[in-house]
Design a protein around this nucleic acid. Structure first.
Lengths: 99, 99
DNA sequence: ATTTCTGTTCGTAAAGATACGAACAATATT
DNA sequence: AATATTGTTCGTATCTTTACGAACAGAAAT
């Protein structure tokens, strides 16, 4: 495992990872809503968005795995919030990227 | 064709489109280089990047179709440049998005 | 005219993304 | 205990992305 050849810098990988998470309009919509009010329930988003519930779960998972949001179960509902640390990291990277 | 139901706003679609283009580290690397020196030949990038020539062409096409770069043939070479108008559009959208 | 240089496009394979409904799990309510 | 509510996960189908080498195309030089 020390024989891993890095093809890209950590920064390039990070920018790509965050950008990828923003690469679908429904995920942009989710994040816009979430950044506006910081937190939101799955159900409230499902009412507004033009996708099936299961598809929404998948997109939320993508955002979670990219580190941009975090979810917590607040039975029987699930509440999703912006992960502020990574959100700010992404913000800084993107601003730096565009100069 | 008037019966098109819009699922997302133009802004959401645009952010997703630009983000998608940034969604692969090699494309991030290309744009970093290009934004640093404004223009660059295909061949010079090919020397540095860890991908085949044909793959590079594909990635450049993705960036072109997203509007972030433009290419012009300067025989026998091909020169690629940042599309400044769209670059600034993307910059503005991303900054607005992250607040 | 043929060869060289540069880059694109084609063909193709493997992997990932997106979508949905059905089935499942966990908690709360009856 | 049975039911209802809320989301997640599973199974599946379809499409897209990424990658490569081979074949191709255009201009320049021999």
């Amino acid at each position: 495992m020390p024989t891993e050849i890095k093809k890209y810098t950590d920064k390039q990988e990070l920018i790509a990872k965050f950008s990828n998470a923003l690469g679908h309009p429904v995920r942009v919509a989710i994040l816009q809503q979430l950044s506006k009010q910081s937190c939101c329930f799955h159900g409230d988003m499902a009412e507004v968005l033009p996708i099936a519930n299961s598809t929404l779960s998948q997109h939320l998972k993508v955002l979670r795995e990219a580190g941009l949001i975090q979810g917590e179960i607040d039975p029987p509902k699930t509440k999703y919030c912006i992960n502020k640390e990574n959100w700010n990291l992404a913000k800084g990277l993107m601003i730096g990227f565009f100069d």
